[in-house]
């Protein structure tokens, strides 16, 4: 992936994060603009443009910068929030909701981290009165590590969160780009949270992402460096080789990582809005997702039937428990944990 142009909001000329990002692209034209949203999202830009002509916006995030996460987003018992530091992702996962979420595949990096952190602090002050842990997630609208060597904000968040003892910061990623993380000391309240899928699913559905093996190697390095690790087996896509594939993945996880030190492991299956489901096959007409048994539910969402879903979760849970994971480490992401 190569960027074609950099669009920089004029008011950010003095922002150090913005300056450093621009320095990464000495050969790209830098176009000064008033506001990123005069361009980004003004019309629906073809999603597949990202393969050939991706633009980078450096902008100030206005409006709601920290949002309440939906129910069942993370482990029960703690309030969960995510903060918005970027829009869009350099990877191309066939099931990704970003295909239809934004009107453009271009990347927006928000650089007003001080304002984002001030908003986090405000929520923290309120929530920490009632809860022993308040969770903040990065990576809801983007991969939180893939461009971290360019965006350069990790250190600032680590330092900020060290002052918030009851807070927990979770970075969601598929990236093996861990150079920036290895340069920093691992704070005790930061969790690096990896999405993993079987090697076959990775090959068929997660385009331009590091292989599962590369991700596992990166996780092992981070674990050795002292980082807390979480894993998401999400989305688990049902294929003809699902059982063999996930058995192998779980064996690889348990042979590569110290599983007793994994903070938590969540399971999830794909779910699509009607528009997102349509977009998947528009963008990937030969996608093997069409072979998976999705049903359109009463709310117009495409998902597996409860029977299929339960069978998937039962199988994976059994494999995880027999590999040494404890029940306490496991939960379902965006699903009913009562039966699990």
């Amino acid at each position: 992936m190569k960027f074609k142009r950099v669009y920089l909001e004029k008011d950010l000329g003095d922002n150090l994060f913005a300056q450093n990002i621009v320095k990464h692209f000495p050969n790209l034209p830098v176009i000064e603009i008033d506001k990123y949203d005069n361009y980004f999202g003004k019309f629906r830009k073809s999603y597949l443009n990202k393969r050939h002509s991706l633009d980078l916006f450096i902008a100030r995030k206005k409006g709601l910068r920290v949002k309440k996460a939906p129910e069942a987003y993370g482990n029960k018992g703690s309030p969960h929030y995510y903060f918005v530091h970027a829009y869009n992702c350099v990877y191309e996962c066939e099931y990704c909701y970003l295909q239809s979420y934004f009107k453009s595949p271009d990347i927006v990096l928000f650089v007003n981290h001080e304002e984002i952190q001030a908003d986090i602090l405000e929520i923290y002050k309120k929530e920490s009165l009632e809860h022993s842990t308040v969770c903040f997630h990065a990576g809801e609208f983007s991969d939180s590590l893939a461009l971290s060597h360019i965006s350069g904000e990790l250190k600032s968040y680590f330092e900020f969160f060290q002052k918030l003892p009851k807070a927990r910061l979770e970075f969601r990623t598929k990236s093996s780009n861990i150079k920036a993380l290895l340069k920093l000391e691992a704070p005790s309240n930061v969790v690096i949270s990896y999405s993993l899928s079987s090697e076959n699913n990775n090959k068929d559905f997660d385009h331009k992402t590091p292989s599962s093996t590369a991700r596992l190697k990166a996780i092992a390095k981070l674990q050795k460096h002292g980082y807390k690790i979480a894993i998401h087996l999400d989305p688990i896509i049902l294929t003809n080789t699902f059982k063999e594939d996930y058995r192998k993945l779980i064996q690889d996880i348990s042979s590569t990582l110290e599983i007793e030190n994994i903070e938590h492991l969540s399971l999830g299956v794909p779910r699509f809005s009607k528009e997102a489901y349509k977009d998947v096959f528009k963008h990937y007409p030969k996608s093997k997702l069409q072979l998976s048994p999705f049903k359109c539910g009463s709310q117009g969402k495409y998902r597996y039937s409860d029977e299929v879903k339960d069978s998937i979760f039962d199988f994976v849970k059994r494999e995880l428990l027999s590999s040494g994971f404890s029940n306490k480490q496991l939960y379902l992401c965006m699903d009913d944990n009562e039966k699990f």
Partner: peptide, 25 residues
Amino acid sequence: SSVYAYSHLDDYSFRSFASQDSQSP
């Protein structure tokens, strides 16, 4: 693959239309 419009008012039309050749860059 897609067509957009720019209007007399010096702004984009919010509507764009994808052709049947969605794979074209």
